[in-house]
Simulated scan of single mutants.
Amino acid sequence: MAITYIESPSTDPAFNLALEEYVFKNLPRDKTYFMLWQNDNAIIVGRHQNTAEEVNAVYVSEHNIKVVRRLSGGGAVYHDLGNLNYTFIADAKDAQVIDLQYFCLPLIRALEKLGVHAGMQGRNDIVIDGKKFSGNSQYIKDDRIMHHGTILFDSDLSVLSEALKADPEKFESKGVKSVRNRVTNLRPYLPEGTTLKQFREALLANMTEGEELETYTLSPADLMGVQKIRQGRYELWDWNYGVSPDYTVRRSKRFPSCGLVELRIQVVEGRIANLAVFGDFIGNGDADELAGELKGCRMERRALTAVLELIPVSWYFFDVSSEELVDLILL
């Protein structure tokens, strides 16, 4: 069967995940589709994960990292322009029993031809010298399968480790937690001087070896369809954060001006359902009054700021600003 190659015109994560979904749902099912694409500065969380539990919210905000939820399961991953992603979309009668390795092996074979000896570890990771450089996941529906994977080519691993650094002891939830593995970039294992462009071209040539390759150019109608999905799902806070499993989070900080403030926050569908305040802090007002004002508010900086800017926070927590309280809630 011929393989149809589609190249994304964008590095926006919401667009690229929408493009995957569009191809999966709308393009003819008698073809197998292969895509190479990149996201700029993004965290992609798994379908069943608690977004707040996976990301370092303060770091993500300070570094303008986009957070988007994908359709498939698995753990959270960091993408930048040193990372290359690939996708296979195909029909499969018994898709529910297809092993992830079926779609990982072409990448392993392609790397072998480039002089890189990689192998599978566990169910969905590809490793070199025991270090993960590619994670994979799948989405299956109506006898159709979408397999996608990441390739750490030359990513900023320091940003990766900070952006995904969330404290599991501060959360109690039923969300699927990511497993942090030792990771490595692929570039040091390739011939010296290999660029991402060269690797991309070599990968495309080898990944489809033995199969006829045809290129599909997205039409204006296709792009309109992608944008509709993007705006209706992947740009929405309700999808990226709100569909997270319910959870309870604990926050605490000792402010020099007022003392220790401890928060117990129950979050349902991404919004504050209950907020209890404890600590040895000093203030004039009843902190439960302030907590009541935050019920129903999204666990998101803009929404929290909009509420707290209308409240004299320092009346409840001496000399603490609304911005400092937002930082504590999202710590």
Rank of each mutant, 00 (worst) to 15 (best):
A2W: 11
P13V: 00
A18L: 04
E21G: 03
N26T: 11
T32Y: 04
T32S: 11
T32W: 02
M35D: 03
D40R: 05
G46P: 03
R47C: 12
N56M: 04
A57E: 09
R69V: 10
R70A: 08
G73N: 10
Y86E: 08
Y86T: 09
A90E: 15
L114I: 11
L114N: 07
V127L: 09
D129T: 08
F133K: 01
K141T: 11
D142L: 05
R144L: 01
R144Q: 06
H147Q: 05
F153I: 12
E169V: 15
K170A: 13
S173H: 13
S173E: 09
G175C: 13
N181I: 03
L186P: 05
Y189A: 14
L190K: 03
F199S: 03
A205G: 06
E211R: 14
Y216M: 09
T217K: 13
S219R: 13
A221G: 11
A221K: 14
M224A: 15
K228G: 13
K228R: 15
Q231W: 14
G242T: 08
G242V: 06
P245Y: 09
V249Y: 05
R254N: 15
E262W: 04
L275P: 00
G283V: 03
G285L: 10
D286A: 15
E289G: 09
E293R: 05
C297G: 02
R298T: 08
A303E: 07
T305K: 14
L310A: 15
S314C: 06
V320L: 04
V326I: 11
L330G: 00
